[in-house]
Design a protein around this nucleic acid. Sequence first.
DNA 1: CCGGTGTATTGCATCGTTGTAAATCGTGTG
DNA 2: CACACGATTTACAACGATGCAATACACCGG
Lengths: 339, 339
Amino acid sequence: MATRPRIKDVAEYAGVSPKTVSNVINDFEHVSEHTRAAVREAIEALGYRVNLAGRQLRQGRTGMITLAVPELDVAYFSELAKHVMAAADRRGRTVLLHQTGGVRERELSALHGFDAQFTDGIILSPLSLTPRDLATRDTRLPVVLLGERQAPGAVDHVGIDNVAAAREATEHLLARGRRTIAVVGGAVRGRQGTDRLRTKGYQSALRAAHVPFTPDLIVPVEHYHWQDGARAAAALLERQPRPDALLCLNDHLALGALRALHEAGLRASHDLDVVGFDDIEASRFSVPSLTTIAPDKEAIADSAVSLLIDRIDRPDSEDAIDRLVGHRLAVRESTGERP
Amino acid sequence: MATRPRIKDVAEYAGVSPKTVSNVINDFEHVSEHTRAAVREAIEALGYRVNLAGRQLRQGRTGMITLAVPELDVAYFSELAKHVMAAADRRGRTVLLHQTGGVRERELSALHGFDAQFTDGIILSPLSLTPRDLATRDTRLPVVLLGERQAPGAVDHVGIDNVAAAREATEHLLARGRRTIAVVGGAVRGRQGTDRLRTKGYQSALRAAHVPFTPDLIVPVEHYHWQDGARAAAALLERQPRPDALLCLNDHLALGALRALHEAGLRASHDLDVVGFDDIEASRFSVPSLTTIAPDKEAIADSAVSLLIDRIDRPDSEDAIDRLVGHRLAVRESTGERP
DNA sequence: CCGGTGTATTGCATCGTTGTAAATCGTGTG
DNA sequence: CACACGATTTACAACGATGCAATACACCGG
């Protein structure tokens, strides 16, 4: 058979109507054991598979969900993706992965456009989307947001308490006697992103410890990659007075900073403390290993998937849900833990 | 409007027939400027988007292609994914990403199952698929394989010359005077995978240099992650005589090995050389930075996408194409390059 | 004024599936 | 033995888009 078999072919083979085949496929209860077996056999014999385009057209569902993240080569996102796929699998859904580059236009198209077409709902980790974008979004597509809380009350959301996490990390540095703590990737103004929230937590820890805040120590970066961390750290090491700790807002930045330390002939934890965020696999194996805030990625993935499936199954349910998941500070060699 | 507008709604708004709207959408040439403008305006006003399910049902195309890789948190694959997405974008296609876990069943389902449904073709990086699986595959879906050459002549394929690459890496180590070179992740028997091919290249370099081959130095690993590299390296460092170089079959293994060296109080390039494969971003920033085989990922992605699109556009064209792309040895600190 | 040529537009059928409602079957009851 | 009722099966239409083929229109030369 050159073309793929359709339900009609199965029906003819089994000597029943197409609708009966459909009933078998969809586990409709009133089908006699006998016909059910015959249809199963026909399906097997012809190698039939449902055509999702036809099904979607008819019933508007695909059983697939989209996960859209800025960059998959940022390890946090690829590790998260793995957990999301596992969580979806447990619930019988398939995940389509989508990369936005953090570009607003492509984040929007994930919400409205092509990319969302074959999908019952989307888990989106936005970088550039504004609250307004979300407010005017196409409400027919269920959405769960990850990361910072963009649109309270408007869209389901899952994330960690970024302010508290940054505060804990900073407290850890202060407890080790560090006083000149730079924030790599930080921001004190601009949109209320993860960077702002984490910088806030840092400031609050300083305040509580009566350590004066020096805006100069907040160093923005363009991207959250090794290179940016290495460059920012190299510049910071030139400063007088030299910072005695680097709070890096993700692990890639921190690992890049470790590299810069090495090149400057300095030793982490001895000359300078380094802390990251995300607890990516690399942070456990770098030399030295990296102290970092470890968000509970599995819980994030699990909550996001279950919230999304709830939304899909009950589209007109109550208000948006906000779910905070746990995190902890994983202390390693870069702040003095012995190997 | 509660429901999404259909072509019919646009047609009514613009005062033309649905078919005319379709003609405008698909850039059919015989449409007067006047109606074209009217239709465009109606589309804009109603916020119309084509429904891909409807379109696919009718014309059997979606404009999307699938990229299926074993694990996205192996950096080689996420970096490759990025390039594939860029290449597809340049050609007006959208990429759906899929993760197989390297499990045969899921690699098969990428070829046959749900995941393949919304897709015009698939770029697959297989781990467990057998040549037989490929021979009996559903030939209606265009496929391009990445990695080792699984099914010569049956399916399009893109990859680097793994044997030559491993030979070059080994020659580099031999030239530095290393003689007891272990292969982390290597294999001398079993399926003809990347591991076998690279081990072959290693053996051929030894032979050419008249260095005896010691099967004991070939250490298989379960996965290609840091942890496996660290564990395998730790075990190797206990051996008598201790290896004086580690050829690790991917960068994650190599970075894990660097970690093991550190924990054993040894210095890479001084006590022991370490080489990896893949040139992931981390290899440029690790301490020490990692000598590694750098495959031309952009060329791989580009070739794969263009081969696939050719296949899609001309399904019954000539025999399978095999494309080898370049690679080079990036020499860094782990084999003695000065910072 | 007619037939011819080419452009612009449209009606209709169809892709594969499933919801709705109706038809058919079998069994037990009065 | 007719009838009711539930179980099983089916006919038909519809989801949204577009290929095909037919129609409508404009303009030309003879």
